[in-house]
């Protein structure tokens, strides 16, 4: 029993944090929202250079570049991605790597051989839809591949979105319904089994990202209330402000160990619990950040908006709170 990240795990997260701190991520997010995916892709490529995406793929297929599966390391990494506000289908790319890797482990190696090396190396972004997930693929217009798994267990490479992508309430996200046609890649129960695993990973990594988003929002707001003066004193000295921030920290600190445990065990109910707690904590952090920044928090020009607008879609992506609550009780017996 040592329920803490190891030194190596902490070092990995610190490395990512250093890389992201030096990467002008807010500018990449704004460019991404404006349809310029260049800076975001370059960022993803640098992140993949740390081995990030390889953590999602099984090392048993070493020739394909996998180093994993290492869900704890990957989840700690995605906390940093959330903290930095990294744009794009990052959860989806990792989940696609899991899907392909898992399918290979189950004996269906073709799709992994074809797509996995490029994903692991950070040369390509992917997006996907899975049974049990939502109907939209995130940022299909920016991804090299859009995988889709049907409820009947058909995996195919979908064509571009029907009628073009839809805008999200977060300008840095675009949503597409995968086209009904496309190249079939595999079919059968192995596809469904791999898709279930990929869904759990997508949910876990979204939870981790939420935790980072919430931490960034809290940190920005704490900085702000120490500087902002009204009635001749920093507003951070007022008890109403302090208590709201205390509650924000509380929710994040109790979500964190759920995310860790979900990564350790990857049992579906624990993953759902982590997603529920981290998603709600991040959204609550967003509402606290908005309220305590006052009117300037309600503007798009403040970079805070990049995180504020992310919190709600991430709370609902890959398992809404209601779906997660159902999963928590559905699976547990007794």
């Amino acid at each position: 029993m040592r329920f803490l990240p190891t030194g190596e795990q902490s070092d990995f997260a610190r490395t990512l944090r250093g890389l992201l701190d030096a990467s002008q991520v807010p500018a990449a997010v704004r460019a991404w929202g404006a349809g310029d995916h260049g800076p975001g892709r370059a960022l993803w490529s640098r992140l993949a250079g740390t081995g990030l995406c390889a953590l999602a793929a099984d090392e048993a297929h070493g020739d394909l570049g996998g180093l994993g599966p290492l869900p704890v390391e990957l989840a700690l990494g995605f906390v940093e991605l959330g903290r930095a506000g990294v744009p794009g289908p990052v959860v989806e790319t990792a989940a696609a790597a899991v899907l392909l890797s898992e399918l290979a482990r189950l004996g269906e190696e073709g799709p992994a051989k074809r797509f996995l090396p490029g994903l692991v190396a950070g040369e390509a972004l992917a997006t996907l839809t899975l049974p049990g997930g939502g109907p939209y693929a995130l940022d299909a217009d920016a991804a090299a591949y859009c995988f889709t798994v049907s409820a009947a267990g058909g995996l195919r490479l979908a064509g571009g979105g029907e009628g073009g992508p839809l805008r999200s309430t977060d300008p840095a996200r675009r949503l597409s319904r995968p086209a009904p046609d496309g190249e079939p890649l595999a079919t059968g129960p192995r596809v469904l089994a791999a898709a279930r695993t990929a869904l759990d990973w997508a949910r876990l990594l979204t939870a981790a990202q939420c935790l980072g988003v919430g931490e960034a929002l809290l940190a920005s707001t704490v900085r702000y209330v120490k500087q902002r003066t009204q009635f001749g004193t920093p507003i951070g000295g007022f008890q109403a402000v302090k208590h709201r921030l205390a509650d924000t920290l509380l929710a994040l600190e109790f979500a964190r160990p759920l995310v860790w445990a979900a990564a350790l065990g990857l049992t579906p109910w624990e993953v759902a619990a982590a997603k529920l707690a981290a998603g709600e904590a991040a959204y609550a952090a967003a509402m606290t950040a908005l309220q305590l920044h006052g009117a300037v928090g309600y503007t798009e020009e403040l970079d805070l908006s990049l995180w504020l607008r992310k919190a709600r879609p991430l709370r609902d992506a890959w398992g809404s709170p209601s779906a997660c609550r159902e999963a928590v009780l559905g699976e547990l017996k007794g």
């Binding site: 029993m1 329920f3 600190e253 109790f254 160990p257 707690a277 609550r325 159902e326």
Partner: peptide, 22 residues
């Protein structure tokens, strides 16, 4: 939903304590 929150909360409290104990 409230029952689920109670289940999740108990687990969160347990895990928070394991981390602190560690």
């Amino acid at each position: 939903d409230r029952v689920a929150d109670a289940v999740v909360g108990a687990r969160a409290y347990e895990l928070f304590t394991w981390a602190a104990a560690s």
